[in-house]
Design a protein around this nucleic acid. Structure first.
Length: 431
RNA sequence: GGAGAGGUGGCCGAGCGGUUGAAGGCGCAGCACUGGAAAUGCUGUUUGGGGGUGACUUCAACGAGGGUUCGAAUCCCUCCCUCUCCGCCA
């Protein structure tokens, strides 16, 4: 949520920043409503002040023995009633204006950071760096990971679709073990890097989704349990950031680092037909997420460090990747600045997103009301929140299957995973 | 699902119709005492919105929303949440 005060004080500047996202936004309706609301509020405050005053006077008189039936008190009571009648008229109007303003504010995305490169859309994202040697097929045929998985008997799409529907897969035997090994490996590494693990609820309420920015605008992206105010979490970012919703943290507690493994659920609305095969775009996938709550002054460097933490996983797995900084036209709703990690997929001969690391500044903190207080200082400040995948597990498996496949159809196990899997080769699965 | 208890400031906890934004305690900060510390004493210590350069002032908030009243943390209604016991259960 953007700061209404800043919008009021500097609408042109805010609008300019919003338009860097390459979408049209309006601030005038908010400004108009805000003027009306403030006017009503000041009248309301005056009436309330008078009403309080009357109450106090009556209280004093009655304590000092004035008869409650006396003319004096009756007159005051009558005035009190008049004030109340006016308030009764004003209050709902004022409340409605406030609600309208809030609704509009919730629809506005975050402002891009001034370091975010300008651009219309994903074609103008900027490659920051590359790591590792791309595995270029030398004439021999490279299979897509989905096919490798099916051949090895470690991915079973057909039965998953029977059990659920399309865009679901099941992992079997060494496939399941590999997924589990990846989750453990990623968590172990991030815990070593200083993140505290959380296993949060994966059914979460509407307030939480609003807190991190998925609601109200992106309701159609999540699965909802219709009988309850509960949704399937689209990413652990939501429950873990909302862990601290409505709290005032002590400044010394910052920065807070969390990592969390959860399954993630997304409708993938609007992506009909895209990435239908394999592990790339599913309704349910596993992810290890990194979440930080930090002091505003440090969020820039904390962001870079978080990206490095995610990169460390790819490096340990020896998977080639590149880091891309998203331009103003491509960053997500809540993000001010965002880096994507894209892993090399030789079959598609391209890099595919495997992690997205966002610095949300105080945007989510404002929505979720997460503040901190410095000892000895007056007042509170909003924290900055960051989140990043460390990493998307299914896509990591996809990358391993493609980058580690061998001519005989088996797949080597990355060295760092061998202790977890107790084998160095995937193949000859008896399933 | 059945029965009961309860939700008050950073925390504990009192208040159950009238200058109560809220006693008391803990914690925290400052000062005093001390060679230094502990102990002790004194003072201060919620958040958000308006207005003023400022001392300051005003409004709101005692789970949420309504109601009664001149006046509600206190009374009434609805909802939400937590806890205890019983039942069921991975």
């Amino acid at each position: 949520m953007l700061d209404l005060k800043k919008i009021r004080e500097n609408p042109q500047e805010i609008l300019k920043l919003l338009h860097q996202r390459n979408t049209d936004y309006q601030l005038q309706p908010i400004l108009d409503l805000d003027t009306q609301q403030r006017e009503k509020q000041s009248i309301k405050t005056e009436l309330q002040a008078r009403s309080n005053e009357i109450g106090k006077i009556i209280g004093q008189k009655m304590r000092s023995g004035v008869n409650s039936q006396s003319e004096e008190i009756s007159r005051l009571k009558e005035e009190g009633n008049n004030v109340k009648a006016k308030l009764a008229e004003l209050e709902p109007e004022e409340r409605e204006l406030k609600a309208k303003i809030d609704a509009l504010l919730l629809e506005l995305p975050n402002l891009p950071s001034n370091t975010t490169p300008m651009g219309k859309n994903e074609t103008e994202n900027i490659e920051v760096r590359r790591w590792g040697d791309e595995f270029i097929p030398d004439g021999s045929h490279i299979l897509p990971h989905g096919e490798i998985g099916e051949k090895l008997g470690i991915i079973d799409s057909e039965r998953a679709v029977k059990v659920a529907q399309s865009r679901f897969v099941a992992l079997v035997g060494m496939g399941a073990a590999l997924e589990r090994a990846l989750i453990n490996f990623m968590l172990d590494r991030q815990i070593d890097a200083g993140y505290i693990e959380v296993i949060p609820p994966v059914l979460i309420n509407s307030e939480s989704l609003q807190g991190t920015g998925q609601l109200p605008k992106f309701a159609e992206e999540s699965f909802k349990c219709e009988n309850d105010d509960l949704w399937l979490t689209p990413t652990a970012e939501v429950p873990v950031t909302n862990f601290y919703r409505g709290e005032i943290l002590e400044a010394e507690k910052l920065p807070i680092y969390h990592c969390a493994y959860t399954p993630c659920f997304r409708r993938e609305a609007g992506s009909y037909g895209r990435d239908m095969r394999g592990l790339i775009r599913l309704h349910q996938f596993n992810k290890v997420e990194l979440i930080k709550l930090v002091h505003p002054q440090t969020s820039g460097e904390e962001h870079e460090k978080m990206v490095n933490n995610a990169e460390a996983i790819l490096q340990a797995l020896k998977l080639p990747y590149r880091v891309v900084e998203l331009c103003t036209g491509d960053i997500g709703f809540s993000a001010a600045k965002c880096y994507d990690l894209e892993v090399w997929l030789p079959n598609a001969n391209t890099y595919r997103e495997i992690s997205s690391c966002s610095n949300c500044h105080d945007f989510q903190a404002r929505r979720a009301d997460i503040r901190f207080k410095e000892k000895g200082k007056k007042g509170t400040e909003y924290v900055h929140t960051l989140n990043g995948s460390g990493l998307a597990v299914g896509r990591t498996m996809a990358a391993i299957l493609e980058n580690y496949q061998q001519k005989n159809g088996t797949v080597k196990v990355p060295e760092v995973l061998q202790p977890y899997l107790k084998t160095d080769i995937l193949g000859n699965n008896e399933y």
